[in-house]
Simulated scan of single mutants.
Amino acid sequence: MDLRPYFDELERFADGQMSLAEQEAFELRLEQEDALADAHAAYEQLTADLRWAAGHDTLRLRLQALDERMNERGTALDRAQHLASRRQRRQVVLVALAGVLLLATGVAAWYFSRPERARPASSWQAYYRPDPGPAVTAALLTTNPLFAEALDQYQSGHYPAALHSLGRVSPATVGADTLLYLRGLMLLRQGQGNAAQLYLRRVGAGSSPGELARRARYHLGMAYWQAQELAPALTELRAVAADSLNPYRASAQQAVAAGVLEAR
């Protein structure tokens, strides 16, 4: 129905804006005027519908906000669980890496501290026992200064200079075998194993082996070894190892026992 003719009165009555006399008069009219009573009933229904609609919309908005908060909370929980899972995986990886590092450290410590059981050294220098030659004495400096100079240069590691000085020494003042022996030693120490063999083989040739010849045989074996002639090197060193009078017997025995000169 059309509420407009009564709307102001109905609104004032519903809001309690009428005086007591106006309110009593309005209530009397409601009893007497059917049109006003119908308008009042329609107005009450309208306001009730509006209140319901407003309350329903408020509830809908509240439910929607609650859903959004729940969604946000679920997203936050998922993110927190993901971060916790990733942190846990990282910790597992770090623990595994620490274990691997600890194991590697232990293996390295064992490797470097273990007793040496590696295969014997195969280089001739590992078994070589050098001969320093005769001592340079004051008497030698006086009687044979050229020979003393050659010995001093040899013992100082100046092998080319020592060879040059030795070439100026007369065999009559020293002895041919001594010069051959020392020249072989110098060439050997200079890394010229092939050239050293030529001189060391001639020491004591044609006579019974003496002290110098026994020494020369050991250095000859080492000269062969230096030149990678392993078979003759083994032959010479075996002979030295079997000679109880050779001063290099122990060194030769060690080289032979190592087996590094055996044919492979």
Rank of each mutant, 00 (worst) to 15 (best):
A25N: 04
L220Q: 05
G210W: 06
V174I: 10
T143N: 09
E24V: 05
Q45D: 07
A53C: 04
A42R: 01
F26Y: 00
P160L: 07
L180K: 08
D49T: 09
N71E: 15
R79V: 10
W124D: 01
D131G: 03
Q91D: 11
Q192A: 14
E236A: 12
D49L: 11
L230F: 05
P120F: 04
E262R: 10
R114N: 09
W124T: 00
Q192E: 12
H158V: 10
H40F: 14
L180E: 01
E9K: 05
R90F: 15
L261N: 13
Y224H: 14
A76Q: 12
L261V: 10
A21I: 09
A150M: 08
A98L: 13
E27F: 00
R86Y: 09
M222H: 01
E211K: 08
N246Q: 08
E68H: 08
E116T: 12
R12V: 02
D57E: 13
R183G: 07
V203F: 07
Q254A: 14
W52S: 09
Q81W: 15
L3I: 13
N194T: 13
T58D: 11
D34Q: 10
A239L: 12
E116G: 12
H82W: 02
A48L: 09
W52Y: 06
S156C: 02
A257H: 06
Y218D: 00
A241M: 05
S85T: 12
L198N: 09
M70L: 12
A108H: 07
N71G: 05
D243R: 04
Q254R: 14
G74A: 14
Y224A: 08
E236P: 03
